[in-house]
Computed example of a mutant assay.
Amino acid sequence: MRRIHVIGIGAGDPDQLTLQAVRALQSTDVFFILDKGEVKSDLTQLRRDILDAHLPQGTYRLVQARDPERDRTAGGGAYSPAVGDWRSARAGIYERLIAEELGEDASGAFLVWGDPALYDSTIGILEEVLGRGEVAFEYEVVPGISSVSALVARHRTGLNRVARPVQITTGRRLAEGFPQDVDDVVVMLDAHQTFRQYADQDMDIYWGAYIGTPDEILASGPIAEAAPRIERLRAEARERKGWIMDTYLLRRNPDAR
């Protein structure tokens, strides 16, 4: 039976891998990587750097395939179907890679940024591949340090306050309004800098981009003061690299509700 490891590799720092993740790397025959094109080629290189940090160079086999494009213009009711089409296209690629590049008794691995259980599609895609019934395999999930955990660690703060909940959401959902009865909100996948619409409120923001990599950028403070600085840092970084991955925590003063 083929075996697949879904390995959480943290936010980018090779030192963030757990011992379990390192053992999974060491027991893998083939590593599968989806190439996102020249603009994001450094994401592929970061994965290579992680492998080189924990495995003897030249001892592992790497198989790359081009990641399918997703319709990022789809909004409203078209958003979920667009994501579904993209995931199905990925499932077709995963199915081919596993069937053609992995022997019947070999093990393969997908290296997942952060934690595979938090805003990542790999588990769902592998389930779709199994559901098609064309290729059989077993798989295990190795948790990783998420960008959320790395963000608050770098800012030396916690996710929540005593006896209070924390919510993790997306920029798309935050644009619909601040969650009720929650004062600490982590926002991921925010391409539109939704935090700007809360710049007149009594909140603090803890923001980070490229967390865990040599390009890491951090900013924090009262949102009215920090928002313009974050906008500038974000624009400069995107211009310099061509892409950006960022995450932030919004912390509201409960008395301001």
Results as ranks from 00 to 15, higher is better:
residue 203 M to A: 09
residue 218 L to H: 01
residue 18 T to C: 04
residue 11 A to E: 02
residue 178 F to T: 05
residue 109 A to N: 05
residue 13 D to S: 10
residue 75 G to T: 09
residue 31 F to C: 08
residue 252 R to D: 02
residue 65 A to V: 12
residue 207 W to I: 03
residue 146 S to M: 02
residue 234 R to H: 13
residue 63 V to P: 06
residue 176 E to T: 08
residue 28 T to H: 10
residue 215 D to V: 05
residue 168 I to L: 11
residue 136 A to Y: 09
residue 233 L to F: 06
residue 234 R to V: 06
residue 137 F to I: 09
residue 171 G to K: 02
residue 155 H to P: 05
residue 202 D to G: 06
residue 106 A to I: 00
residue 53 A to T: 11
residue 201 Q to G: 12
residue 187 V to G: 03
residue 23 R to S: 15
residue 179 P to W: 03
residue 239 E to H: 15
residue 36 K to R: 15
residue 57 Q to T: 11
residue 156 R to M: 08
residue 101 E to M: 13
residue 104 E to Y: 13
residue 93 I to M: 11
residue 47 R to L: 07
residue 125 I to E: 04
residue 15 D to T: 14
residue 204 D to R: 09
residue 90 R to C: 03
residue 113 W to D: 02
residue 240 R to K: 15
residue 25 L to T: 09
residue 144 G to T: 04
residue 46 L to A: 11
residue 156 R to A: 06
residue 53 A to I: 09
residue 52 D to A: 12
residue 220 S to F: 01
residue 217 I to L: 06
residue 47 R to I: 13
residue 203 M to N: 06
residue 27 S to A: 15
residue 186 V to M: 04
residue 145 I to P: 00
residue 56 P to I: 10
residue 19 L to G: 13
residue 109 A to D: 01
residue 100 E to I: 11
residue 172 R to Y: 08
residue 6 V to W: 01
residue 63 V to M: 11
